[in-house]
Amino acid sequence: MTELLYMIAAALSLGGLGLIAFLWALKSGQFDDLDGAANRILFDDEPPPPSSERR
């Protein structure tokens, strides 16, 4: 029976830790731009400017 109480305490602790991590991610802006990375892969990067030095 005591093992069950330890398991319940551990599950509640881990759940609370996960909730705190999720709220921290929301507050720090991790979920602000969900479509940006998905759209960024579709477009090519700007080509670098040509260098003035010739080899």
Rank of each mutant, 00 (worst) to 15 (best):
A9N: 03
P49A: 11
F43H: 12
P47M: 10
F31Q: 07
R54F: 15
G36R: 04
R55W: 08
S13N: 10
L12C: 14
P48M: 08
G29M: 07
A25K: 13
P50V: 08
R55S: 10
S51N: 09
R40I: 06
D35I: 04
P50I: 06
L17D: 06
L12G: 06
T2L: 13
A38F: 09
A10P: 00
I41Y: 01
D32A: 15
S13R: 11
T2R: 08
L4Q: 12
L17E: 09
E46P: 02
G15N: 01
G36P: 00
P48F: 09
R54W: 13
L42P: 00
G15F: 02
I41L: 06
D44G: 05
D32Q: 15
L14V: 15
R54C: 11
R40E: 15
G15L: 02
G36K: 07
M1W: 01
A11I: 12
I20K: 11
W24F: 10
E53Q: 13
D35Q: 01
A21L: 06
R54Y: 10
D32R: 15
D35W: 03
L4I: 11
A25P: 00
A21K: 03
L26R: 14
G16T: 12
W24T: 04
L34G: 04
L26S: 01
D33S: 05
L34V: 14
D32W: 08
T2A: 14
I41F: 02
E3G: 07
F22V: 12
L19C: 08
G36I: 00
A21P: 00
D45E: 14
E53K: 15
L17C: 15
A37K: 08
L5C: 04
Y6Q: 04
L23E: 01
L4F: 11
A25H: 10
D35F: 05
S28Y: 02
K27A: 15
Y6G: 02
L5K: 11
G15T: 02
G16F: 14
S28E: 10
R55H: 10
A10R: 03
G18Q: 03
L34F: 11
E3S: 14
L34I: 15
W24Q: 03
P47W: 03
G18Y: 01
A25Q: 11
Q30M: 13
A11P: 00
K27H: 12
Y6C: 03
D35L: 08
S51E: 10
M1K: 00
Q30R: 13
S52M: 13
G36D: 02
D33K: 02
P50M: 05
P47S: 10
R55M: 06
P47K: 10
I41P: 00
P50E: 13
Q30S: 12
R54I: 13
R54P: 00
M1R: 01
